[in-house]
């Protein structure tokens, strides 16, 4: 909130600042004991991030859309390192927040997921369809982050999902939904499919049979 007219920033600048704020808050905490570190890290950058968000809002009219900007950013970033992607993933949530709200709307979240998790989440289509149909409330940051963790550990047959884990309810519901409609079939069909699709057609069993097309 400078006194001068808000200057123009592009998405690259915003992302750079976002990363700066995060790493700065991390640096600040070096020296304390570990538990406190995490707590400070959580609370310190909020003001800085809110300022950044305001800056984004004032620049929004210059951008065609957040998602096309994100796509532009994605094409330049190197996601070979997992950590880099995690940063970017968190950033997507940050930039999707509207008017300083804590959570993001379902439609934004789904669009963003389809964009950033493409090729990274084997059940992406099913997940997005499920969320669109069943979730009425906004998506919280915690849920957003856990979806990334979920996408990393789960296979298309839902192996890797720990039912005893502290997954958010939305993910539990999704798994339940999937196991009702598809898991049974999958178990039997796994051998007939040779390659792995990101959007596997098995689950469309009830829309029209396309069970095996190998």
């Amino acid at each position: 909130m400078g006194s001068s007219a808000p200057h123009q920033v592009d998405i690259f600048e915003v992302y750079r600042r976002y990363c700066d704020i995060r790493s700065a808050s991390k640096r600040l905490c070096i020296g304390g004991d570990r538990q406190d570190d995490e707590l400070k890290e959580a609370s310190f950058p909020r003001d800085a991030l809110n300022c950044l968000l305001k800056l984004v809002d004032s620049n929004l009219h210059l951008w065609t859309s957040i998602f096309s900007e994100l796509l532009r950013l994605m094409s330049r970033l190197d996601f070979m390192v997992d950590l880099e992607f995690s940063h970017f993933y968190d950033f997507v949530f940050f930039i999707c927040r509207e008017n300083g709200q804590k959570n993001i709307t379902v439609s934004r979240a789904v669009t963003a997921w389809r964009l950033v998790l493409a090729g990274r989440f084997r059940l992406l289509n099913q997940w997005c369809d499920f969320v669109e149909k069943n979730q009425r409330h906004n998506i919280s940051e915690d849920t957003w982050q856990q979806v990334l963790a979920f996408s990393r550990c789960v296979y298309e047959n839902l192996e890797g999902y720990d039912p005893e884990g502290a997954w958010p309810v939305l993910i539990d519901d999704f798994v339940e939904h999937m196991s009702r409609f598809g898991f049974y079939v999958l178990k039997n069909l796994q051998l007939t499919c040779s390659s792995v699709f990101f959007s596997c057609p098995y689950f469309s069993l009830f829309q029209g049979v396309s069970i095996i097309r190998s």
């Binding site: 707590l39 959580a42 940051e141 502290a166 958010p168």
Partner: peptide, 23 residues
């Protein structure tokens, strides 16, 4: 679980960065 989520949202609790099963 929903209650935990709401507490996280209200910033009474947080998930551990490295272990999501830890609060």
């Amino acid at each position: 679980k929903m209650q935990i989520e709401s507490l996280i949202e209200q910033e009474y609790l947080m998930r551990d960065k490295s272990n999501p099963n830890l609060f």
